[in-house]
Simulated assay, not measured.
Amino acid sequence: MSDFDVTAADSIDLARLRRFVAVAEELHFARAAKALRIPRQALSATVIELEQELGTRVFVPGASPTQLTEDGAALLGHARELIRAHEQAEREQKPEAPASLRVGFVPGVTVSKWARIWADRQPDHPLEVVGVAQSEQENALREGHVDLCFVRLPIDRTAMNAIPLWQETPVAVVQKDDALSLLDVVCPADLAAETRHDGADLDQAADTLALVAAVGGAAIVPQSIARLHHRRDLVYRPISDTEVTEIALAWPAGTDTGLLEEFVGIVRGRSANSSRGAAEPERTARPRAAAPARKNTAKKPAATQHSARQGTGRGRKPGAGRGR
Rank of each mutant, 00 (worst) to 15 (best):
Val186Thr: 00
Ala302Gln: 14
Leu68Gln: 05
Glu262His: 12
Gly277His: 08
Arg314Asn: 11
Gly62Trp: 04
Arg270Met: 06
Ser274Thr: 15
Gln137Val: 07
Glu51Arg: 07
Ile220Cys: 09
Asp71Phe: 09
Pro61Ser: 10
His306Ser: 13
Val146Ile: 13
Thr304Trp: 06
Arg80Leu: 13
Val132Cys: 06
Pro252Ala: 02
Ala115His: 03
Phe105Leu: 13
Pro281Asp: 01
Ile163Thr: 10
Arg314Phe: 05
Ile38Tyr: 03
Val130Met: 01
Leu202Tyr: 08
Ile220Met: 13
Leu234Ala: 04
Leu260Pro: 00
Asp120Leu: 11
Ile266Ala: 10
Pro238Tyr: 00
Pro123Glu: 05
Pro39Glu: 12
Glu168Cys: 02
Leu260Cys: 02
Asp203Arg: 03
Ser64Val: 07
Glu128Lys: 14
Ala15Cys: 05
Asp71Ser: 15
Ala289His: 09
Ile155Ser: 06
Pro123Ser: 08
Val151Gln: 04
Ala35Ser: 03
Ala248Glu: 02
Arg227Ile: 05
Leu75Gln: 03
Asp120Thr: 12
Arg16Cys: 05
Val109Gln: 05
Leu249Asn: 06
Asp3Val: 11
Thr158Val: 10
Arg324Gly: 04
Leu68Cys: 11
Val111Cys: 07
Pro318His: 09
Ala35Met: 03
Asp178Tyr: 02
Gln52Pro: 04
Ala205Met: 05
Leu153Thr: 01
Trp118Ile: 06
Ala140Leu: 04
Leu234Gln: 03
Cys149Phe: 09
Ala89Lys: 15
Val60Ile: 14
Ala192Trp: 00
Asp5Ile: 14
Ile83Asn: 02
Asp233Ile: 01
Pro61His: 06
Thr208Lys: 13
Gly315Leu: 00
Ala89Arg: 15
His86Val: 01
Ile266Glu: 03
Val106Ile: 12
Gly77Gln: 08
Pro252Met: 04
Ala115Gly: 14
Arg142Val: 15
Gly72Pro: 05
Pro281Thr: 00
Arg314Lys: 15
Pro252Ser: 01
Asn273Phe: 12
Ile220Ser: 07
Lys317Asp: 13
Lys295Arg: 14
Glu81Leu: 04
His229Pro: 08
Phe29Asp: 08
Ile266Thr: 06
Gly277Met: 07
Arg102Tyr: 07
Phe29Thr: 12
Arg19Cys: 13
Ala218Gln: 06
Gly217Gln: 07
Ala85Phe: 00
Glu25Gly: 00
Phe4Gly: 03
Val174Leu: 00
Asn139Gln: 14
Ser275Leu: 13
Ser271Gln: 13
Leu148Arg: 08
Ser2Cys: 02
Val132Met: 07
Ile12Ala: 01
Gly258Asn: 10
Asp203Trp: 03
